[in-house]
Simulated scan of single mutants.
Amino acid sequence: MSEPLPTVAAFTDSYLPTVNGVTYTVSTWHDRWQSRGGEMPIVYPRADYDSGPSEYAARSLPFPFYDGYRMALPTTPDEVLNGDVDVVHAHTPFGLGLAGLRFASKHDHPFVASYHTPTAEYASYVVPDAATGLVRSASERWERWFLDHADLVLTPSERTRDHVWDLGVDAPVEPLPNGVDVEQFRPTDPTEFLARHDLDGDRPLVGYTGRHGYEKCLPDLLAAADGLDATVVFGGDGPAREELEAEARERDVDVRFLGFLDREELAAFYSALDAFAFPSPVETEGLVALEANACGTPVAGVNAGALAETIDDGETGYHYERGDVDGFRDAIERTLDERDRLTENCLARRDAISVERAIDQLEELYRGLL
Rank of each mutant, 00 (worst) to 15 (best):
A300D: 08
D324I: 10
L258I: 12
P281G: 09
T297H: 06
Y270P: 03
R329K: 11
T316F: 02
A268E: 14
D252N: 14
G259Y: 12
N303W: 07
D312Y: 00
G305E: 03
T316C: 02
E247S: 13
E315Y: 04
Y320S: 00
F260T: 13
E265P: 05
S280C: 14
S280F: 07
P281I: 04
S280W: 00
E321H: 12
D324P: 03
D254P: 03
E283R: 03
E321P: 01
E291S: 12
A300V: 10
F260W: 10
T310R: 05
A246E: 15
I332R: 07
A275W: 04
S280K: 04
H319S: 07
C295T: 14
A267W: 08
T297V: 13
T284P: 00
A267D: 13
D274V: 11
E309I: 01
D337I: 07
A308I: 00
F276T: 05
R256H: 15
L258K: 12
E321S: 14
R329I: 08
V299D: 07
A248L: 07
F260E: 11
V325Q: 01
N303G: 02
E309L: 09
D254C: 13
D274E: 15
G327T: 10
V325K: 00
A292H: 11
A248Y: 02
E285D: 11
G314K: 09
V253T: 11
D312F: 03
G286S: 11
G286Q: 02
S280L: 04
D330Y: 04
D313S: 09
A306Q: 08
A246L: 09
D326P: 00
F269V: 05
A246S: 15
D326F: 06
C295M: 13
V325A: 10
V299L: 08
R329M: 12
G296A: 10
N293E: 14
A272K: 02
N303C: 12
L258N: 12
E247C: 01
L290S: 14
L258S: 09
E333Q: 15
L336W: 06
N303P: 00
H319P: 03
E245G: 06
V282N: 13
D312W: 06
G314M: 07
L290Y: 01
V302W: 03
E247L: 15
L273S: 02
A292F: 10
D254M: 10
E247V: 09
Y318E: 03
G301C: 13
I311S: 06
E245I: 08
D313W: 08
E283H: 06
G314S: 04
E315S: 13
G259W: 08
Y318M: 07
E285K: 01
P298M: 12
A275M: 05
R334M: 12
A267K: 10
V288D: 02
D330C: 02
A294K: 10
E291I: 03
F328Y: 15
A277K: 01
E283K: 04
E247K: 13
E291L: 09
Y270I: 04
D337Q: 14
A292N: 12
N293P: 08
P281M: 08
A272F: 06
T310H: 06
E309Y: 02
A267P: 13
V282H: 06
V299E: 10
